[in-house]
Simulated scan of single mutants.
Amino acid sequence: MCPKKQVIQALPELLNAQTIQQVKDRVQRSICAIGFDYYLIGLEDPAGAIDQYSVETNYPRDCVESYSRQKWITRDPVVRHCRQSPVPMIWHREHFPGEACRLYEESESHGIATGVATALRGARYNRLMMISVANGATYTPRLGSWLQETMPMVQLLASYAYEAISRIDREAIAAEIGLTRREGECLHWAAVGKTSWEISRILGCSEATVNFHFRNVIHKLGVTNRRQAVARALSVGLIRP
């Protein structure tokens, strides 16, 4: 079976992953089918702070720990590109000038020498995610042509991984916060601009009941008013815009 067909057939399984570990396992199988050895998925904090992010990767532990210890996140040319542009990037030694050359040389020593990186921000979750896939091959024009051909598959894989991870995170947050069905419905209608009276008519209850639900929501989300509750719920994906 050709790599492209193998990856495409595996996408529904990736989308339906129930845990982050399942996402990682399925991403790894897909990138291996394409011809890569390593992957790194970086997902920013909902607030968008560059120093608040989560990483899922199969990079060697020593490599990851050194990267974190030296705080390369703010100086990594690949991360910088992904934060600034949704256009996929083929990266290799020439993309790591100056002090970043040290980062490249350390990565290369672990078999991470060339790769493709891409980023996306979903309309539903509004969180930036980047995925970078790599192997240890030395860059040549021929390898560059192959990397160019793999870009669509990497982008497609990133889209499905983003959706799966965001759904899993949203469900975990929802379970932790513990909103009831009615509280979620009140938040949804508040997000589209409905007043308590209008929501009470939609849900078939009293306005006082709607306000009761909102007091509970505000407490559970750790905010001070309804507007902040809606903003918080949108930022973590509890409700859709």
Rank of each mutant, 00 (worst) to 15 (best):
C2M: 10
K4P: 00
Q6W: 03
Q6V: 08
I8C: 06
L11N: 12
L14R: 11
A17S: 15
A17R: 07
A17L: 10
A17K: 08
T19M: 05
Q22M: 10
D25E: 15
S30Q: 14
S30V: 02
C32F: 01
I34V: 14
D37P: 00
D37R: 06
Y39P: 07
L43G: 02
D45W: 12
I50N: 10
I50K: 09
Q52N: 14
Y53Q: 03
E56P: 00
P60F: 09
P60M: 09
R61T: 14
R61I: 15
D62R: 14
C63V: 09
E65N: 13
Y67G: 05
S68F: 10
W72P: 00
I73G: 00
I73L: 02
T74E: 09
T74H: 07
H81S: 12
H81M: 06
H81T: 08
R83E: 13
S85L: 05
W91K: 05
F96C: 06
E99G: 01
R102Q: 12
R102K: 08
E105C: 01
E106W: 00
S107L: 07
H110R: 05
I112N: 03
A113T: 13
A113I: 02
V116G: 02
A119T: 11
R124E: 14
R127M: 08
L128M: 12
I131S: 08
V133K: 05
N135T: 05
N135E: 04
T140M: 06
T140F: 02
L143D: 08
L143P: 05
Q148M: 05
Q148D: 04
M151Y: 01
M153Q: 13
L156E: 11
A158E: 11
A158Q: 11
Y162R: 11
E163F: 13
S166I: 00
R167T: 15
I168E: 10
A174P: 01
A175V: 00
A175F: 01
E176F: 03
E176K: 11
L179P: 03
T180V: 02
T180Q: 05
T180Y: 04
R182A: 15
G184I: 02
L187I: 06
A190Y: 14
A191P: 05
A191E: 11
V192S: 11
V192I: 15
G193M: 10
S200T: 08
I202M: 15
L203V: 07
G204C: 14
C205E: 10
S206P: 02
A208C: 04
F214V: 11
R215P: 05
V217W: 04
V217H: 03
I218E: 08
I218C: 03
H219L: 04
N225R: 06
R226F: 11
V230C: 03
A231Q: 15
G237T: 02
G237A: 01
L238P: 07
